[in-house]
Design a binder for these strands. Structure first.
Length: 280
DNA sequence: ATCCGTGTTGCAGT
DNA sequence: TACTGCAACACGGA
């Protein structure tokens, strides 16, 4: 699921289902899920904690508890599901953690198809000091994400703009799918060197990013590898994808075949007619 | 069978 | 030192 819109959708789901509930038991079935957090600590500390609310920070999910923050990153395939104790939305052996609440028959389960996701418990109000989080850049919706800010970060680099936009220390929340979409809509070639971008290009990238991410949040995110019938978290933005996953299909704007290349190990889709390298 | 992938990190090379 | 590329993590699907 997880780029910024998908994480927002999960956070809304968590707030609707478990906000205000008090944890009564915790079980972990895959210890590598935990980062800098011992299993004993997790169990000891989580019991009797109330979930005061859940927030998103880029692709991170922040559970605000009475005395702690619990930081969840879904990576590629992680899923939080609130479901009946005896009903499993996904294969039971994919459950990595399970949280029970007082006066509540349903349980909150963390499933992970690829076991890449992480969970970390941090003392209250300390989570922004975690090194991995402290270094992150601005979300496109943040006031700090101005054209000047992006231009400063980008114009001194010779890296491909595709790579720069995936770098979460510059902008926060864009992943591979949405970067492909943003660059198509901004008509910028994914391999364009950061130093060739103008201030106007940066302003356009930010505007398009907000448009695309906002629309996707409205649509419930993008669901690509959804194999689950009745998955209540599936989104609809995949209907709006212009280039991602459309290799050799005609561009919706000009009809040219969409090209797929590899940029730093990530599948990269673009229209060779609409997105030309600058002649500099 | 081999390659690919919604993400991030840590290591190695320049 | 700073920047960059890439393997690694794990596992199902094409």
């Amino acid at each position: 699921m997880p780029e910024l819109p998908e994480v927002r959708v999960v956070v809304n789901y968590l707030n609707q289902n478990v906000k205000g509930k008090v944890i009564s038991a915790v079980r972990v079935f895959y210890n590598r899920l935990l980062v800098e957090t011992s299993l004993l600590d997790l169990k000891d500390k989580l019991v009797n904690q109330q979930i005061e609310g859940v927030d998103a920070y880029g692709k991170y999910i922040i559970f605000h508890l009475t005395n702690y923050e619990m930081i969840s990153h879904l990576r590629m395939e992680g899923k939080w599901i609130f479901e009946s104790d005896n009903f499993f939305s996904y294969p039971q052996d994919l459950v990595e953690a399970e949280i029970e609440f007082e006066h509540e028959a349903k349980v909150l389960r963390y499933y992970d198809f690829r076991r890449f996701g992480t969970l970390q418990l941090v003392a209250k109000n300390q989570w922004k000091t975690l090194p991995a989080i402290a270094k992150l850049g601005y979300e496109p919706f943040d006031k700090g994400a101005s054209a000047d800010y992006l231009f400063t970060k980008v114009h001194s680099s010779s890296r491909a703009i595709k790579t720069l936009l995936l770098d979460q220390t510059i902008l926060l929340g864009l992943g591979n799918i949405y970067v492909n979409e943003v660059l198509f809509q901004a008509k910028i070639h994914p391999l364009e060197s950061g130093k060739n971008l103008t201030l106007q290009d940066c302003a356009l990238i930010l505007q398009v990013s907000k448009d695309i991410l906002g629309k996707s949040i409205e649509e419930g995110g993008t669901t690509i590898h959804s194999f689950m019938v009745g998955n209540h978290q599936s989104g609809h933005y995949q209907k709006y994808l212009q280039v991602h996953g459309r290799e050799n299909l005609p561009c919706f704007v000009c009809g040219t075949k969409i090209k797929k290349i590899n940029v730093n190990g990530r599948g990269t889709y673009y229209c060779p007619w609409c997105q030309k390298l600058k002649k500099i």
